[in-house]
Design a protein around this nucleic acid. Structure first.
Lengths: 206, 206
DNA sequence: CTAGTATGAATGAAAG
DNA sequence: CTTTCATTCATACTAG
C-alpha cells in the first residue's frame, strides 16, 4: 500500500535523484492539492469538520491518491505551525521592541516582508470574501481528471471556486493582513520545501 | 516526574532546535512500558479503574518514571484512537464497496491505521495467543523462561511476568478478536512512529 | 556525499 | 467520550 502519487512526476524538484519512486512512505501532496488546501485554509476554514474533510479529500483525489487522514493531518499541522510562527514572530517582535530602547534611530525591522496592507482577507482570485459565494454545497463540480497533463491545471483551478463557507469561522488569522494565496507572504507559506516552489502561480504554470 | 528516560540517547534527528531545554516536557514511554500497556489493553482491560491505574503505574515505573496521569491518558488515547481507527476503516470499506470502480491501486493512506491485513495471530514469542492467556485475570501470567535470546531486555521482560493478579476485570469487549501483542495487526498498532519500530519483538531486541 | 529544512505522521496532554 | 493543541519523530527534498 501507500501507493499514492505514483503517476505525477511533474514535481519541480524531481531532479536526478529519484527517477521513479515506487512507494512513498508518506503522502506528498501535489501542487494542485496544496493549492486547494491553501485556498480552503485561507478562505477561513482552518478547521474543517469531519464531513468537510471527506469532501476535501474527494476533491484532492482528482490529483492524486490521498486519504482522509492526510487531509486531517494537513489542517492540523497547518493550524499548529501557523500559530507557532505567529507566536514566535510576536515574541521576536516584542523582544525587538524592548531592544529598541538602545536604538535611537531604529524602527526599520521587518521579518518576512509582511507588508500587510489591506484588509482584503483573501485570495487574489477573490472567491472567499465574495458575499454571495459562501453557500455552495460543493467544492468542485466537474473537472474531470486530467492526469498528467501539465497545462490543464488551470481549468481545474477555475472549477475549484465553489467552496462553501459553512465553517465555524473560529479564527481568521492575524491582523497583519493575509496576502495572496498565489504569492504568499509569511502568513501563508505554502512552499513545502525550501525553495521548492516559491510561488503558487509559478507552481501551476499560471 | 520529568526526568524520565534519562537513558535514551538514540535520537537520530537531533537537529538543532532547542537551545535551552534539557528536560523532556512530556512522557515518552519506553518500549517495555508500551509492551505492558499494550498487553493490558489487549487482554481486555481497556478502561482500568483508578486503583488499577495506580498498580499499572507502579509496574511501569520499573522501566522509567511515569505518573498515574500518564497511564490514565494513555488508556484514554488508546481507546479513543482505536475507536476512531475502526470507524474510519468501516467508512472506508463501505465507501469502497459503494464505489466498486476502477480503483485498484492507489491510496491506502488510512486515518490512523496502518493497513491491517494480518489475520494471523502470531506472536513471535508465542505467549500472547496462548489459549489461557486472554482470559487470565492477570496481565501477564507466568510462562516466562523463554530465555536464551540475545537481548538484555529479555530479563526485563521476564521480570515483568510477576504481577499481582487482582483486578476487577470489567470489560472484555473488542469483538474482532485480540491479535498478537508483539506483531500487531491493525487492531493493535503499537508502533508510535512510522518505521521507528515495526514490530514489538524487534523493538525489544528479541 | 552530508547537512539543513520543511512537513507528514504520531502521540502525549488537555480542553470541551 | 470527543476534539484540539503541542511536541516529537521520520522522511522528502534542497543546498553546499
Amino acid at each position: 500500500m501507500e501507493d499514492n502519487q505514483g503517476q505525477d512526476p511533474n514535481r519541480p524538484g524531481n531532479h536526478g535523484t529519484e527517477r521513479s519512486e515506487p512507494v512513498r512512505s508518506r503522502w506528498t501532496p501535489k501542487p494542485e492539492q496544496i493549492l486547494i488546501l491553501e485556498s480552503i485554509f485561507n478562505s477561513g476554514m482552518v478547521n474543517p469538520p469531519k464531513d468537510e474533510t471527506v469532501r476535501i479529500r474527494k476533491l484532492l483525489e482528482k490529483f492524486g491518491s490521498v486519504g482522509d487522514a492526510n487531509v486531517f493531518y494537513w489542517f492540523q499541522n497547518r493550524r499548529s505551525r501557523s500559530r507557532r510562527r505567529q507566536r514566535q514572530m510576536q515574541a521576536t517582535l516584542a523582544e525587538e521592541q524592548r531592544n529598541q530602547q538602545a536604538q535611537a534611530s531604529g524602527g526599520a525591522i521587518q521579518y518576512e516582508g509582511v507588508s500587510g496592507g489591506g484588509g482584503s482577507t483573501s485570495s487574489l482570485l477573490g472567491f472567499a470574501n465574495s458575499p454571495s459565494f459562501a453557500v455552495s454545497p460543493s467544492y468542485l463540480v466537474g473537472s474531470s481528471s486530467s492526469s498528467g497533463v501539465v497545462g490543464h491545471e488551470v481549468g481545474v483551478v477555475e472549477s475549484l471556486f465553489s467552496i462553501p463557507n459553512q465553517m465555524g469561522f473560529q479564527e481568521v488569522e492575524q491582523g497583519s493582513g493575509i496576502s495572496s494565496i498565489l504569492c504568499p507572504s509569511e502568513t501563508s507559506n505554502l512552499q513545502y520545501q525550501t525553495g521548492k516552489q516559491v510561488c503558487m502561480a509559478k507552481l501551476l504554470n499560471l
